[in-house]
Design a protein around this nucleic acid. Structure first.
Length: 581
RNA sequence: GGGCACGUAGCUCAGACCGGACCAGAGCGUCGGACUUCUAAUCCGACGGUCGUGGGUUCAAAUCCCACCGUGCCCGCCA
């Protein structure tokens, strides 16, 4: 609803400015501070002061007079407070907000008829997903959700690196070593099973006898060549390892949950000839140079040359990724990629090379994530350092369960939680807490992973927000009959707590719009927390079920609207909204 | 050495892209209060900050520009 109100303010203010002969290019519309009784404000008067030859407050008063509120649906009055213009909402604003927010899809913007592919996670299928990698789906999934809410047709892709050296080495190791040479797997799962070969192979190459290592290198090289030449046998050997490990990784990711519409395999772009085709076209560009027996691109504004064809005529990761992105451009209007910060240079080279090939690279956006480190250092699948995401989730659920059981005695609500409820709550709260801890922070900031903080259920955390949903659900549950939200007297909702809550509900679609625009899930996380605070004040001050007549009806409608809003905000973040906890 | 990012209360962060009611807001921690009232995973209060440092632009700077300091990442015919 805030979006509609803003549109009215924009046209109204433009008209007023025009009438007075002022420029209309900068309306200075902003959100007023919480203690101001307005929904929107403008600071134009500051900038107009010089043109007008008057002090800002004088200009503001002049504008307030010129603003025509007679035909406005949502703007009731314009008031000045010093140099600021404050726009106060009409009762219709509250009515429309309640009506809109009780619809299940509240927060979804109008469809745009534009497709976007969100690629995220894309971790190499070398072993179990660790906590460092988990930042990618935990931010990538909400980015996809956000674009979906913003009206795009979204597809979620996981790009599977099945053609690289790592995978060739893994394949060799898997075939070369025997199970009896390996330690027991940490879990009875295919990715935990196979990663042992990967680690064993990696250690062997570093520490093994010289001639055996040379022999292994030759075998790895042969696998890579086989892939390059399109030999079916090489593809089969590699895919045994890749598909098995990937299957295991998907089980972990599904717990978050993060799911994908398509797993796009890198080898696809070797087999269909598109990588070769890219190479041919790159060679014809004026930036192509042949140096040290390899084809390279001397890209504008990038110091480092990009090698796109090795001296042995094989392609590189980035070459194949170029073919991959040309395919994305053919099939989607926009492409968003969520990558680790170590790919920053590679992403710039990719963009620049795509530009060279004649693509509109404005369609391509990249979100870079900084590392999640342990207090003692980084995480690595190959070295086996780091914490498996499964372990983190298990521990989170275990602690959440202990918490639920602790609270059982002091529980005021007289419902009986079944064993199944306790399981459900532990899972929702435990996993929610892990996700919120990561999604709420700016991706550019390095995270040092600490158990205590990641699993703090009382901080600014998921359970705090989930609790609001449970409280709202509890009230609605007991109310039995819900009022028609379009037929309640919103005027009875006149306390500060009620007005604040309406205001927060109304702002949700605008939050979605801005967060989608900037690809910023943390903005939704912050909103959800602020929303929860506002709801909790309302909850404390305004009894719903025991309120008299029309007040009860109106408050019930308000609680229903709040429940939908918080449920959908959590939905964007990929965090469960518990009915009870 | 070069490129990119980050630096805000003791700790973890929001605010920065788009300067304005911010002489800066949360949470944790510490201290003190509130459960006969729709779930206390809640709420209320107190203590706590030269917004890394220095300069500049502006009527106005946490926010924009420059320099410096500190930290992370990258600078492979790896991915």
């Amino acid at each position: 609803m805030l979006l509609s109100m803003r549109a009215e303010v924009e046209t109204g203010l433009s008209e007023a400015l025009e009438r007075l002969g002022y420029p209309t290019d900068d309306l200075g519309i902003e959100r007023p501070p919480d203690d101001v009784d307005a929904v929107l404000a403008s600071s134009v008067a500051f900038r107009l002061a010089e043109v007008a030859g008057e002090a800002p407050p004088v200009v503001a008063a002049e504008l307030a007079d010129a603003f025509d509120t007679s035909d406005r649906e949502y703007v009731r009055t314009v008031r000045t407070q010093g140099p600021y213009l404050n726009f106060l909402p009409a009762e219709r604003y509250a009515e429309a907000t309640l009506a809109a927010a009780t619809e299940d899809g509240y927060g979804h913007l109008d469809p745009r008829d534009q497709s976007v592919v969100v690629e995220h996670t894309s971790a190499n299928p070398t072993g179990p997903v660790h906590v460092g990698r988990a930042r990618n789906p935990i931010i990538g999934d909400p980015i996809a959700n956000l674009l979906d809410y913003a009206g795009y047709d979204v597809e979620r892709h996981y790009y599977v690196n099945d053609a690289g050296r790592q995978i060739a080495m893994f394949t060799w190791a898997y075939e070369r070593f025997d199970e009896s040479d390996l330690p027991d797997p940490e879990r009875d799962r295919p990715d935990y099973d196979l990663v042992r070969y990967y680690r064993k192979g990696s250690t062997f190459l570093e520490e093994g006898p010289e001639d055996a290592v040379a022999e292994a290198e030759a075998e790895i090289q042969a696998i890579l060549q086989g892939l390059e030449e399109g030999e079916a046998e090489s593809y089969d050997r590699v895919s045994t390892v890749v598909e098995t490990v990937l299957g295991g990784m998907q089980q972990t990711l599904a717990r978050l949950p993060a799911s994908f519409d398509e797993f796009v395999r890198e080898t696809r772009f070797m087999r269909d000839g598109s990588t070769e085709d890219v190479v041919a076209r790159l060679r014809d560009t004026e930036h192509a140079v042949y140096e040290e027996e390899a084809w390279q691109l001397d890209l504008p504004d990038i110091d480092k040359n990009l090698v796109f064809l090795r001296s042995d005529d094989t392609s590189l990761y980035t070459t194949r990724d170029l073919a991959h992105h040309e395919w994305k451009f053919e099939n989607f209007d926009r492409a968003v990629t969520v990558l680790g910060e170590d790919h920053e240079l590679q992403a710039r080279q990719l963009r620049s090379a795509l530009d060279l090939l004649g693509h509109d690279t404005d369609q391509l956006e990249t979100v870079h994530l900084s590392w999640v480190n342990l207090p003692e250092g980084g995480m690595s699948t190959r070295e086996g350092t780091g914490i498996d995401l499964d372990d983190l989730l298990d521990e989170a659920i275990r602690r959440a369960r202990a918490e639920v059981e602790d609270r059982l005695d002091g529980r005021m609500r007289d419902d009986e939680l079944t064993e199944a409820d306790i399981d459900r709550i532990a899972r929702q709260v435990g996993i929610g807490a892990v996700r919120y801890d990561i999604v709420a922070r700016q991706p550019t900031k390095t995270i040092t992973f600490e158990w205590e903080r990641a699993l703090d259920f009382e901080a600014q955390s998921a359970p705090y927000i989930q609790y609001v949903h449970a409280r709202a659900s509890g009230i609605l549950d007991e109310a039995e009959q819900l009022p028609d939200p379009t037929a309640v007297e919103t005027a009875t909702l006149d306390s500060e707590a009620e007005r604040d809550l309406i205001r927060e509900i109304a702002r949700f679609p605008a939050v979605v719009e801005a967060a989608a625009e900037g690809l910023e899930p943390p903005a939704v996380a912050t909103y959800a927390r602020e929303f929860a605070e506002t709801f909790n004040s309302f909850y404390r001050e305004c009894p719903v079920l025991d309120a008299p007549g029309e007040t009860r009806r109106a408050r019930l409608a308000l609680v229903a609207a709040a429940q939908t809003t918080v449920a959908n905000a959590l939905d964007i973040l990929g965090i469960a909204a518990p009915e009870s906890m």
